[in-house]
């Protein structure tokens, strides 16, 4: 136990935790995007999925709290490492230059904090309904056992939400930043976990970068698809 605590207190251990929580957060991002793609299928598919998630009850809260813990660990260790790294070079070079470090790798703390700010806004927007109460309160009426049944209209909320250009721009910006963050993180974590191989590593780097941008473009497609009318509420275009 002692040696484990010492490990987690070291730079190598802290990086190990960054990589491990990074993998879990990336899996969440993949799951989240898969769910979002139901928006392309239509109102019923999206709302069924949302209702199913809400219906998980305690299990949903276990996942949420686990996710929160993973997020908090990733942020805490990220900031701690950044502070340590900044302290390791108190005087900067008068003529600073970079040989091969990518822009994404040099801006991880910045892109990470932007993603954090985005997550806060996103939760306030679609999970808590603070930013657009009118859209959040939309209901869909479905027939259940022959009776009309009212449920939360997630599809309608998203469509209404992205008819506001301010949100479209904010979400689009945040997704580009997320793409940058992942384009370093998704392959860098293999090195941190100690996996490096002359044949596989170049492919891990290519696939990591590729996947990062596939995810970013996937998320980005939704506000744009709504804004330009490819995803529209039943009964027509801008009714939202």
């Amino acid at each position: 136990m002692q040696s484990l605590l010492r490990f987690l207190g070291s730079t190598v251990g802290a990086k190990f935790l960054m990589a491990l929580t990074g993998v879990l957060l990336a899996l969440f991002v993949v799951g989240h995007l898969s769910g979002n793609f139901l928006l392309y299928k239509g109102q019923d598919a999206m709302n069924d999925y949302a209702e199913m998630l809400q219906g998980l009850g305690p299990a949903l809260w276990i996942v949420r709290l686990g996710l929160l813990a993973v997020f908090a660990t990733h942020i805490y260790y990220g900031i701690r490492l950044k502070r340590r790294n900044a302290a390791a070079r108190p005087v900067n070079y008068a003529h600073e230059d970079t040989i091969q470090a990518s822009f994404a790798s040099r801006s991880m703390i910045l892109t990470g904090l932007v993603v954090l700010a985005f997550v806060a806004m996103h939760l306030a927007h679609f999970t808590l309904g603070w930013l657009d109460a009118e859209a959040y309160d939309l209901k869909q009426t479905v027939q259940r056992d022959g009776q009309p049944f009212e449920r939360h209209d997630v599809f309608g909320m998203v469509v209404a939400g992205f008819h506001n250009d301010v949100f479209v721009i904010l979400y689009a910006f945040a997704m580009v930043v997320l793409g940058l963050h992942l384009s370093h993180g998704l392959h860098s974590l293999f090195q941190t976990l100690g996996f490096r191989h002359p044949a596989y590593t170049p492919w891990i780097e290519r696939i990591g970068r590729g996947l990062a941008w596939v995810l970013a473009v996937g998320f980005l497609s939704i506000p744009l698809a709504v804004r330009f009318g490819f995803i529209a509420a039943a009964g027509g275009g801008d009714a939202g």
Partner: peptide
């Protein structure tokens, strides 16, 4: 492995962020 990393950290060096500037330099 343990002792060398511990000493590396105790000296006040930063943490690796896999940018590979070291390898290039």
């Amino acid at each position: 492995a343990v002792e060398m990393v511990m000493q590396h950290d105790a000296e006040g060096f930063g943490a690796c962020t896999n940018q590979y500037e070291c390898e290039a330099a």
